[in-house]
Each structure stands twice: as C-alpha cells, then as structure tokens.
Amino acid sequence: MPAASTRLMPVMTAPTFSVLDLVPVRSGQTSAQAMTASMALAQRADELGLRRYWFAEHHNMPSVASTSPPVLIAAAAARTKRIRVGSGGVMLPNHAPLIVAEQFAALEALAPGRIDLGLGRAPGSDPVITQLLRSSGAAGDVERFPSHVQDIALMLQPGGATLQFTSGSEYQVVSTPAASASPEIWLLGSSDYSAQLAATQGLPYVFANHFAGAGLERALELYRTTFQPSEHLAAPRTFVTANVIAAPTADEAEARALPQLRMMARLRRNKPMTATETVEQAQQGLRDAADAEEQRIIDAMRSRWFVGEGAQVASDLTAFAERHGVDEVMLALAAGSYDAEPLDATPGRIQTLELLA
C-alpha cells in the first residue's frame, strides 16, 4: 500500500474533491483533441458535484497543453453550470499584474461567483522559455511577487486601486469598469516561502503535493501557525493536491499510472520530453530498455500516489485529508490511455472521477 495512504486515526468524514488539469497530450493526439477531452472532463466533474476545476500553466511541453489558463477557464465556464473554475495557477512572474487582474475580472463577469485565481511563483517552463515569456519587460521579476499579489488583489476590488506618484498626484486603476464581485485569490506553492507569504497576506493556500511531495506537513503547519487575518480571510484555509488513478481493478489502475510515472521520471532526469505514452507504449518501453535509475524514481513517486481500485483509493484519500486537517483534496488525474481509446477523450480520467464521486 502506498506510504501516503497509511491511516493514523479513524476516518470521520469524506473530503470534497476538486480537479487540477494540465490538459495532457498523449502520443498521436492533437492539441485540439486534448482540449476537447479536458472540456468533457470538466463537464463531467460539474455533473458529479465536484467543488472546483483548475487549469495549470505550463509552457513548451509536448505532453501538456495548458499554456493559457484564462482561455481554458473561459471555455470550461461556458460548458459548466455550478462548479468553480480557475487557475492552478497563473505563474505571476510571466505576466503583468494588470493583465492578470483584467483577465480574471472579465472571467468573474462571465461566470459570477465561480472564478478562482490561483497564483504561483514558478516559471512553469525551462529557462529559455522563461526568458521569452519575460522578453517584453512587462512582467515583473520573482522578487516582486509579494507586491504583485497585493496589486492584483487591489485592482480586482470593485473600487480598484489608487496609484500614488512621487509628485503627490493620484491615478485610479480598475480591472473592469463596474465590477460587482471579485474572484477568489489563492496562493500556490511547494515551499516554506509560499506558505509564509499566504499567511502574511491572509490568503488561502494550496501546497503542490502532487508535484513536490516533500515538505507538506511543515508548509501547512507554518501557514496555520503564522496566519494573519485579512479582509480576504478571517482564518487559515487550505487544501492539498494529490496524484490519483482509480479503476475497477488495481491492475488496471497500475497500468494507467505507468505513462505519467515514466514521463515524470524523464522530467526528473532532464531527458528529452515527448507526448505522454499510451499504456501499451509505456509497458513496451520498460521491457525494451530496463533502467534501474528510472525504476527507482518511478517507485519513489508511486509511493506517494493514490492508485488502485475505486473504493480503496477513496478510503485512502479520506485518511490523507484527515491526517492533514483539510476538507478538500484536489485530484491531479494521472490516468493514461490505451491505444484503442478515442483521441478526443480520456476515459481513464473520467473513470477515476466516477469511481470517487
């Protein structure tokens, strides 16, 4: 059984589930087909009663099509009725704060009361792409991340923000002409820095457990113990992410986990990235090129994932949520596809949701 699923106390209540989507691109699939599959997944999550659906921001990756969260959020919001949709997250150093505020004010106007703005500090790509993203000079550097978060929060308020010039004159800035509400802002991270910043600014916080794995307990404790109430939030509010695959049988779940595990192993070893393999391609790849180092990385990652038969995964996620004192778990749906499955759908990811909802 995965180490992450070990129970430390009796289970009380089941957590609410949400979804984190990177819009995965599998071998032979086009970006259009990958996005069609993700939109269908968002609709199913809405129908099943999940709490929120977030899109990540990543760039120049053959296996990931979530390059523009605001565009994907707008598309998902138009296809759903009640689920919250948002970013997990917008990588703020890549963007001018005013542009982010304007985009999410527009989204809030299009889907009132359903928009989340998750903000992150990482670039979401390699150094070359990071330089291209910032080549216009419009986006601020990482060191200005805290002040840019505050700027966005102010500009998203219905009254906007006031700029004070050295001459003493003032200038009013609003993200949309007549806002009636603001998106909910979350800080995302995988380090003590993000936890402390969220606590200092009185914002809700999400630890990227699906990616980092280490430091979760310390980050949550730091956030909760140093939290300072703000106009945004009176008490600490947080949830956790997790890599999850559920299937009718444990064997199928393990098979569907393999493509994503192999891709993550390549990423950790700085190997050339490709579109995500199908289950059959991943299995054949392991047989053709046995690699002890790759297997070691896969085994270490697998120990922190939730993979198995639906009821067992649901039970393990409930214990995980209770152990960390949260009422919500955001699922990074890592189920791969078989060769014969449609290119414009992701049956394994939908199956996971249906078995857990």
Results as ranks from 00 to 15, higher is better:
residue 291 D to A: 05
residue 159 G to C: 08
residue 199 A to Q: 03
residue 234 A to N: 10
residue 138 A to N: 12
residue 218 R to I: 10
residue 286 L to W: 06
residue 269 R to Q: 13
residue 294 E to Y: 08
residue 317 L to H: 02
residue 132 L to I: 13
residue 190 S to Q: 07
residue 285 G to V: 06
residue 206 V to R: 03
residue 224 R to P: 01
residue 202 G to L: 09
residue 257 A to Q: 03
residue 124 G to A: 12
residue 152 I to D: 03
residue 71 V to K: 05
residue 84 R to S: 04
residue 49 G to T: 06
residue 57 E to S: 00
residue 207 F to T: 06
residue 121 R to A: 02
residue 334 A to K: 10
residue 26 R to W: 13
residue 131 Q to Y: 03
residue 340 A to G: 09
residue 80 T to C: 13
residue 8 L to S: 14
residue 234 A to Q: 14
residue 249 T to G: 00
residue 274 T to C: 10
residue 44 R to K: 07
residue 268 R to W: 07
residue 324 H to Y: 04
residue 347 P to C: 10
residue 35 M to F: 11
residue 127 P to E: 10
residue 24 P to A: 10
residue 38 S to D: 13
residue 140 G to C: 07
residue 85 V to Q: 08
residue 213 G to I: 10
residue 216 L to V: 15
residue 78 A to S: 12
residue 28 G to S: 09
residue 274 T to Y: 12
residue 295 Q to C: 08
residue 248 P to D: 15
residue 143 E to R: 05
residue 354 E to V: 12
residue 352 T to C: 06
residue 330 M to I: 10
residue 129 I to Q: 14
residue 278 T to V: 04
residue 21 D to M: 00
residue 72 L to D: 02
residue 258 L to R: 14
residue 258 L to Q: 03
residue 272 P to N: 09
residue 339 D to H: 13
residue 344 D to A: 02
residue 336 G to E: 06
residue 325 G to Q: 09
residue 233 L to P: 12
residue 266 R to Y: 10
residue 237 R to H: 14
residue 66 S to E: 10
residue 198 A to W: 02
residue 124 G to E: 01
residue 243 N to P: 08
residue 51 R to M: 10
residue 7 R to N: 11
residue 135 S to F: 09
